[in-house]
Design a protein around this nucleic acid. Sequence first.
DNA 1: TATGAATGAGCCTTCATTCAT
DNA 2: CATGAATGAAGGCTCATTCAT
Lengths: 213, 213, 213, 213
Amino acid sequence: MKARSAKRSEKRRDQIVQAAVRLFSEQGYYQTTMEDIAKAADVSKGLIYLYFKDKNDVLFYTLRFVLDMYESDVAPALVGKHNPLAALRIALYGLCRLTNEHVQETVLAYRSSKDLSKRQRLEIKIRESKIGRVFRGCLEACIHERLMLPLNLDIMVYQYIMFCHTWALKNWAFRDKYAFDEYLAEGERILISAFLTPKGRKVFESQRALAAA
Amino acid sequence: MKARSAKRSEKRRDQIVQAAVRLFSEQGYYQTTMEDIAKAADVSKGLIYLYFKDKNDVLFYTLRFVLDMYESDVAPALVGKHNPLAALRIALYGLCRLTNEHVQETVLAYRSSKDLSKRQRLEIKIRESKIGRVFRGCLEACIHERLMLPLNLDIMVYQYIMFCHTWALKNWAFRDKYAFDEYLAEGERILISAFLTPKGRKVFESQRALAAA
Amino acid sequence: MKARSAKRSEKRRDQIVQAAVRLFSEQGYYQTTMEDIAKAADVSKGLIYLYFKDKNDVLFYTLRFVLDMYESDVAPALVGKHNPLAALRIALYGLCRLTNEHVQETVLAYRSSKDLSKRQRLEIKIRESKIGRVFRGCLEACIHERLMLPLNLDIMVYQYIMFCHTWALKNWAFRDKYAFDEYLAEGERILISAFLTPKGRKVFESQRALAAA
Amino acid sequence: MKARSAKRSEKRRDQIVQAAVRLFSEQGYYQTTMEDIAKAADVSKGLIYLYFKDKNDVLFYTLRFVLDMYESDVAPALVGKHNPLAALRIALYGLCRLTNEHVQETVLAYRSSKDLSKRQRLEIKIRESKIGRVFRGCLEACIHERLMLPLNLDIMVYQYIMFCHTWALKNWAFRDKYAFDEYLAEGERILISAFLTPKGRKVFESQRALAAA
DNA sequence: TATGAATGAGCCTTCATTCAT
DNA sequence: CATGAATGAAGGCTCATTCAT
């Protein structure tokens, strides 16, 4: 009984959040009315208020949904990858690919984070730093294994993340000139190759050869 | 007569835009009312409509103002610098410093660009690419003079810009851990040192020695 | 079967009405939602509609409940009191005491009577006049037995009732200055003593002496 | 300039309050929408919010208006009346007459006082007590001049006020049976005559004779 | 030019009521 | 009988924009 209602409840929340993700992404938070969301989610306006406190709460769960999606997509891909350099490349590729698939959602996060309450913003930041930790783990291992030169982890992590996000945030500057693959390849050069040790370079080359085969 | 009125007119516009910059930066575009702007600019609500078509138009000029500020601050600093490596460093420093001084305005640009009309957004992008061209010029020269390894200019330019903007966009992740100077120094390492040729490295070192003296 | 279900049914109604009495009294009719009532009565929202036509119907039964309470509490106390002066005093005391015990409910009746339909309001008035008839009976007997001077019954009856209700309606004006007993004592002076015949005065005095002993 | 705008402003407030008095009186506070008030006051919905904080604020000023009306009508009638007994009668007559002319407004005060904020309610009570002070002054003088027996002023004052209000609050119980004059005459008997000293009685009689002539 | 009173479309939110289970 | 998820009409309030002065 309870399980079923919890399931139904979860279904409803998802229904609404997914509609909100799309609408907020396309039109922005303030341009989207609760009516819009209700229509897109195929529920009544009043129903939304059974599952969310107010419009802002919908935004919060929408942003949380987007960030969770990122983390839950990138992190698992690394499981079992014992080679940290490979892991780093996979993480970079994963986040770049996701960003490419969700350009609008990525932009939404930058547009609307400030519209959350302090408490909500804090939680969003926590979610965001989870994805950062994925990169940090890879980087740390690379450096520890002397595959990469020592670097400031905090800052470098954001170099990786921002490189991916830039594809969304400045996509108008790249779309016409570069394919996604080219952009990504350049990223590897700038963010990985440039910082490899001789040992790292060897590993890196053998990986590329492997991938090419 | 006309000149005077044009001057007065310009003064009015500035008055309003500057108030808008502050308010939009602090509270966001949608949270700021025309009333707020009028009060902050010490003019009447109606007056704003003599100088701007509508609220969106105020946003447009506000963003334009912010971007112009960036360009007009960074570009002149390079005039006369014949050493492209020095110029690149100065540009990076300049944009970083500006971003640090205008965190909120920088964030505003990311929040509100999408709220412009297509035509307006296009012009904003043009302004934005001007600052890009500054970096591009430096980079090009560095590479041409074999101070830096060959790099994809389009992408690298945004690496520089985004590094600076990240200080604003993710300031909550850095503020507590790093001083602005440390962040900037790390930027030089990641974005310049890493890509220097042996010749470039020598020039770079001698510059640092000079600066230290 | 029917008896049992009728009993259960009655129990349900009471459950709901009692919750409504409390909530309406405390927060007012319009501030109280059906949800509130359901929760307070520990039943589901839908159930209320099995026993009441709509929210207004709940109000009607709530007010009826309050008035019935008044009548069923004051009237029985007079049974067997053959001395009409004593009865009058008991009635005054009884209504005053009840009002004191149910300040909010009394105020509710004044706040919300107008929110009933004409038909409902009429029935409420009928219930209200029952309590009036109690006083009228006492008064009539007092006058008939020459204990009190002849007075207009209709108006005098409301003098008694309103004196009691004033304790609730204007309680902020009295609470800090007078104890309930003092207020009541003054009422006896103003509404009974002042209108006694010499004969009535004698009876009155002997009663007070008796009560004091 | 300022004076004119202040005047205009005052006019607007009055316009709105008067519409609100009528509508709240007729339909009650919660049944009246801001739209209703706007229409009745022949202004736009938005305008109301330029002069009042919210709907509750309109109620506050509405009730204040009603109470001010009472006080400003009764009090001046007593100016120059050096005979306190005459003054008391005039006050009673005045408040009764006003109540008769504003039955709905009087009822409104009883219905809606609780819908105010604490602070607002306090001010309303202060206004209400002003009318009480008028009666208190008369009564005090009557007693001081030995025209009336000593009485509890606080309580007696409310006997006078409530007698008048009862005409409104319970008008359904009286309207069909008694004319306003009869009700008032009975009030004088119950609330004045009954408490006169022999000296007071003489003065009272001579006044009535005078009035009859 | 400059003002600010006035407008009214539109939005968020509430809540009485219904109905499938 | 009983539930509570779902509805949607309706209301309070905001604010960009206009216009008489």
